[in-house]
Design a protein around this nucleic acid. Structure first.
Length: 409
DNA sequence: GATCCACTGGAAGATAAGGAAT
DNA sequence: ATTCCTTATCTTCCAGTGGATC
């Protein structure tokens, strides 16, 4: 069958609201956080000698951190125009920069058009402060995905201290807004940075299913043609995403993909079935990517959890998983780490969402302990793990055990 | 209610690998 | 080629936790 490309779509009115770079014009689900951002920025407009506070936004991806900041900054700049104040904002995404040095070079290039790559750090810092001084008034630098700079965090120290160090004149204000989805990053920052920067720490908690639902409904209104979404389509996307990471981005992906599936198969409505297929495909891609990027020890720990899952032994305690881990590592001749280390790997897997860790305070022996179970689809995870040349053998063993088990039953 | 137990979570130090400097 | 530095990853050690047990 030969298909021709057609204009228009029976499903979509406008696909842009479903994409990542869409700026929502309202964020009612983040009222509280926006309020905190507002309070931190407010001194800029009061213009009573103090600049906007430095702040740090934490929260997993797809929680509206970046959108929230953009939203409030737009407000601020508009209010500043009305009040005749000079406020400049510069948003910069640090993805791809591995150090303060890179970030500064790019900031300078953005402000002055000059690329100083290769020059010593001190010269670049000077150039940066000169550029900021030229702009004057109040300057707010937003550093998105700031965790990419790792432990070289001097930029987070020097910007907030610029005035007291005499890098910029007394009559102007320079502040920084850091955004990060990595909680470890906060802990690893040097104490002096924490000191200066953490007055305003704003935490974005994951959205729940209801919040995701209203976010999706607003976007769907603009994106889809009237009445093409079957009743449960949005609740399904919302519920699935809420269960996983509580990310609006993820929920939107499900919805968009479901719409595309409907569109591509010539259907004129989006059904629950489309949503299920979309979820399956997206989840699989995510798990696949996650597992591929794991270290060997992460994968081994995961394999141990999978083995216990296959045998119906989950949720299992750390010690039980560790015993199985040792068997598997011995089997494929991998290094065996201590239980302390494997525990960290298991918790790491929990952060990634492949495994669910639950902390219990009760137990036959009391005291705090974790129980783990697989957080992603068993069949999918088995599939992906068996594609690995070394782990494949271990997985074979696990599944063979299962068939013996079933035979015995 | 004192003690035990199985486990957690944090710290300090060891080790290996990679990069930069000499 | 060798040494030094950095960074990530592990190990070792241990105080803390709180139900279970006596």
């Amino acid at each position: 069958m030969s298909r021709t490309f057609e204009r228009g779509s029976p499903i979509f009115e406008d696909e842009r609201p479903l994409t990542d770079d869409w700026d929502p014009e309202e964020l009612p689900e983040r009222d509280e956080e926006l309020g905190q951002i507002h309070n931190a920025l407010a001194p800029a407009i009061r213009n009573t000698g103090v600049g906007p506070h430095n702040m740090f936004l934490f929260g997993k991806t797809g929680q509206g951190k970046t959108a929230g900041v953009e939203y409030k900054l737009e407000d601020l700049v508009a209010a500043a125009d009305d009040a005749g104040l000079n406020i400049t904002t510069s948003q910069y995404n640090c993805a791809g920069d591995s150090s303060s040095y890179h970030v500064l070079i790019n900031l300078v290039e953005r402000l002055t058009g000059e690329n100083l790559n290769g020059h010593p750090m001190s010269k670049i810092t000077d150039a940066f402060f000169d550029a900021v001084t030229d702009i004057g008034g109040t300057v707010i630098i937003v550093l998105d995905e700031i965790d990419n700079i790792g432990t070289s965090d001097e930029i987070l120290y020097s910007i907030p201290r610029a005035k007291s160090n005499g890098n910029i004149p007394d009559d102007m204000h320079l502040s920084v807004i850091g955004i990060s989805n990595n909680f470890k990053f906060r802990d690893n920052l040097s104490p002096k940075v924490k000191d200066t920067l953490f007055d305003e720490e704003i935490h974005f908690a994951p959205y729940d299913a209801n919040q995701l639902r209203s976010i999706l409904e607003r976007r769907a209104d603009q994106a889809f043609k009237e009445g093409v979404l079957e009743g449960d389509v949005i609740p399904l996307c919302a519920a699935h995403a809420a269960q996983d990471k509580g990310s609006a981005r993820q929920a939107l992906r499900y919805l968009y993909k479901a719409g595309e599936l409907a569109s591509n198969t010539g259907s004129d409505v989006v059904t629950e079935e489309h949503v299920r297929t979309a979820q399956e495909r997206i989840d699989r891609k995510n798990i696949e990517k996650g597992i591929r990027e794991m270290t060997m020890q992460d994968q081994l720990s995961l394999t141990a959890v999978v083995a216990l899952e296959v045998e119906g032994q989950n949720p299992a305690k750390t010690t039980e998983i560790y015993a199985r881990y040792k068997d598997i590592a011995t089997e494929i001749k991998a290094d065996i780490r201590t239980q302390r280390s494997v525990r960290d790997h298991l918790l790491e897997l929990d952060l990634m969402g492949v495994v669910n860790a639950t902390k219990k305070q009760t137990g036959n022996r009391g005291g705090p302990h974790y129980v783990f179970e697989l957080g992603s689809d068993l069949g999918m995870t088995l599939d992906i793990l068996s594609e690995d040349s070394r782990l494949g053998d271990a997985i074979d063993l696990v599944t063979t055990n299962r068939s013996i088990q079933e035979y015995l039953d």
